[in-house]
C-alpha cells in the first residue's frame, strides 16, 4: 500500500501511468506485459469525429528528446467507446480519457461521450496540443478561455476532470489558478514544448507540420520547475509528466509536488519502462528511507519554507 494513491475518481495502486499519445489504447503494450500492473492509463486523445492527423514526417529526434506532430490521429470518440474501451475494461487499472476538439461544442460532445462509459474513471482535458490548427493549445494559453472550457467540460462530464496544461505560456501558475477556479478536479502537466528542427541539406523544417511538440528527457527540468511552482498555488492534485524514464525521475516529480506521474516518450525507447519503474519503486523507497511515496510530496518546497 506504500504506492497507493487516491485522487479524484482514481484509486491508483501505484502512481505510474503511461501518458496520452504514447501508449495508443494499450493494445500493443498488452502483448508485452500485464497492463493491470499500471496505476492507470491515459489513453490517446479523442476528438468528435475520426482524424487522420498530419502529413509525415511526424517525428524528428533532438538532443535527449523528440519533436512530434502527429496531429491527434484517432478514430473518434464513438469508435473509441465501442472498439477500444471494451478491451481496456478487461484490465484492473484506471482509465483516463484524453478529450480534445476544435470548438467548445466538440469538447463538450467528446467529454459527454467518453465520461458516460463506465470504464473511464476520469477525463484529461487536452487544451495544450500544439499540433492542430484549431483548438488545442489556443484554449490552453489564455486563462480566460481555459477557464471557460473547463467550466463547460465539467458541466458535461459525469467524471472528474483533470486539465492538461501547456508549458507554452508566460505564467503557468495563472493558468493553473484559472482552471482550478473553474472547477478542475486536478491538473496534468506538462504537455510538450513547441519546437522546430531544420534539415540543413534542404534548408526546410524536418516535420511536415513544420513545428512540433518537444518531449523526452530534455524537457524534464522545465516540467519539474512548473510542477514545483503550480503545486504551491493550487489545492487540487497534480499528475506530473515530462521526460520521465527512471524511478528517480518519478521521485523528483513527487518531491516537486505531484501526486502521480505519467511516462510518455520513454515508452518508445523502452516499451517496458512503466513496468520497470513500478517494480523498482519499492526498492528505491527503501534505499531512501521513505515509507509511503506521498510522504515526500511537495517536500522540495516545504523544506525551503521551513528553513526560512
Amino acid at each position: 500500500m506504500r504506492l497507493h494513491v487516491s485522487l479524484p475518481g482514481l484509486q491508483l495502486k501505484n502512481p505510474i501511468m503511461p501518458a496520452s499519445g504514447c501508449f495508443g489504447f494499450g493494445e500493443e503494450f498488452a502483448k508485452l506485459y500485464d497492463l493491470s500492473m499500471l496505476g492507470g492509463i491515459m489513453i490517446k486523445a479523442a476528438t468528435g469525429e475520426s482524424r487522420f492527423g498530419n502529413a509525415t514526417p511526424r517525428v524528428a529526434e533532438t538532443a535527449e528528446g523528440m519533436l512530434n506532430a502527429i496531429g491527434l490521429q484517432n478514430p473518434g470518440a464513438k469508435a473509441i467507446v465501442s472498439d477500444k474501451l471494451p478491451f481496456l475494461s478487461t484490465f484492473d487499472t484506471e482509465i483516463i480519457a484524453n478529450v480534445a476538439g476544435s470548438t467548445p461544442e466538440e469538447y463538450v460532445y467528446v467529454a459527454e461521450t467518453m465520461s458516460a462509459d463506465p470504464t473511464v474513471k476520469a477525463l484529461e482535458l487536452n487544451i495544450s496540443c500544439p499540433n492542430v490548427k484549431c483548438g488545442g493549445m489556443q484554449f490552453g494559453t489564455d486563462p480566460v478561455m481555459a477557464a471557460e472550457l473547463t467550466r463547460l467540460v465539467k458541466a458535461a462530464s459525469s467524471k472528474p476532470v483533470y486539465v492538461k496544461l501547456s508549458p507554452n505560456v508566460t505564467s503557468i501558475t495563472n493558468m493553473a489558478k484559472a482552471v482550478e477556479a473553474a472547477g478542475a478536479d486536478g491538473i496534468t502537466m506538462i504537455n510538450t514544448l513547441v519546437g522546430m528542427r531544420i534539415d540543413v541539406t534542404t534548408g526546410t523544417p524536418i516535420l511536415a507540420n513544420r513545428i512540433g511538440g518537444l518531449s523526452g528527457p530534455a524537457i524534464k527540468p522545465v516540467a519539474i520547475r512548473m510542477v514545483y511552482e503550480v503545486a504551491q498555488v493550487v489545492d487540487i492534485p497534480i499528475i506530473g509528466m515530462g521526460g520521465v524514464r527512471t524511478v528517480d525521475d518519478v521521485l523528483e516529480f513527487i518531491y516537486a509536488g505531484a501526486s502521480a506521474v505519467a511516462v510518455g516518450t520513454a515508452n518508445f525507447e523502452n516499451p517496458y519502462v512503466c513496468q520497470e519503474i513500478i517494480e523498482a519503486l519499492p526498492h528505491r523507497l527503501d534505499e531512501l528511507g521513505i515509507d509511503h511515496i506521498l510522504d515526500v510530496r511537495g517536500k522540495a518546497y516545504e523544506q525551503i519554507v521551513s528553513r526560512t
Binding site: 503494450f29 508485452l32 511526424r58 517525428v59 502527429i70 518508445f268 516499451p271
Partner: peptide
C-alpha cells in the same frame, strides 16, 4: 517512434 503501432509516427 515506438515501432509497435502505438504512436502513429
Amino acid at each position: 517512434g515506438c515501432g509497435i503501432g502505438a504512436c502513429f509516427a
